[in-house]
Nucleic acid binder design. Structure first.
Lengths: 133, 133
DNA sequence: AACGCATTGTTATATTATAACATTATTATT
DNA sequence: AATAATAATGTTATAATATAACAATGCGTT
């Protein structure tokens, strides 16, 4: 039996390194532009690395922004329960790590008979800095 | 002082009608294709109508799917607090109307000093039908 | 060695969304 | 009624985001 991948491939490492250094969400084509010196030439090389990194939870996609950010949540081994705050003025994005919230959402049930295995929550507002401007 | 718009324009009505009849999320270009007989010829005409309809809460965007669905929530006058369940198998999307959930999220505060004015929550899983297949 | 599978490399193309500019419609104010 | 402010329309072109398809390589398992 083939084991689940435990390491990152060359391209995956390059992309993850770059996204981790950014400390903010990056667009796929901005990543591409910046890793071209490392040999990644085509969008697909970046998208494929991102897909994998999202799948294993090292990177999250900010859906409302089509941007990618490194996971800041050490216990976020698989990317199945994510929450972010997004400042609508400066676009600063912060991953929310709140156990009450994640517990509440993971256990949430409505009357649809559907059991949820994942969620993504994006809060919008003004961050502290922008509020005081 | 100019009042807030109370009616829908021609294009907005056409797009909203179409999306309401669908009962499921539609892609912008699928909308475009289907309203061409009504005179909307270009993507921008659809996107502009969608933008407005999203702004006033008649339509919501399912961010993870880049698709648009009519609001099923009569008290959702402004589109600032939305929650959906998404079946990862059949792609059925349902708007969640749960006052406990919305109260919980609207009052949510973390330690960032940020007060949130909007949120969008997308749950993923298997719907009843697909679970039993 | 042979197999299975993930990854890579590459070219082309599909899909989603906006820029820019000119024009017309609607409503509020004078 | 005339004017001004705002919103909506129409149009062409293009930007930004993402995937299809195919050939080749690398790596662990049998």
């Amino acid at each position: 039996m083939v084991q689940k991948q435990e390491y990152l491939s060359k391209n995956q490492k390059i992309v993850l390194d770059h996204v981790e250094k950014a400390n903010q969400p990056l667009k796929a084509y901005s990543i591409l532009y910046n890793v071209q010196k490392k040999g990644l030439k085509a969008p697909l090389q970046v998208y494929r690395a991102l897909d994998k990194l999202v799948e294993i939870g090292k990177i999250h996609k900010i859906e409302s922004r089509n941007a990618f950010v490194a996971c800041k949540n050490s216990n976020c081994i698989v990317s199945n329960a994510t929450a972010f705050s997004i400042c609508e003025s400066c676009e600063k994005v912060t991953e929310i790590n709140n156990s009450k919230l994640s517990k509440y959402l993971s256990n949430f049930e409505d009357n649809s008979g559907m059991k949820y295995s994942k969620y993504n929550l994006e809060f919008f507002g003004l961050c502290k800095k922008c509020k005081n401007k």
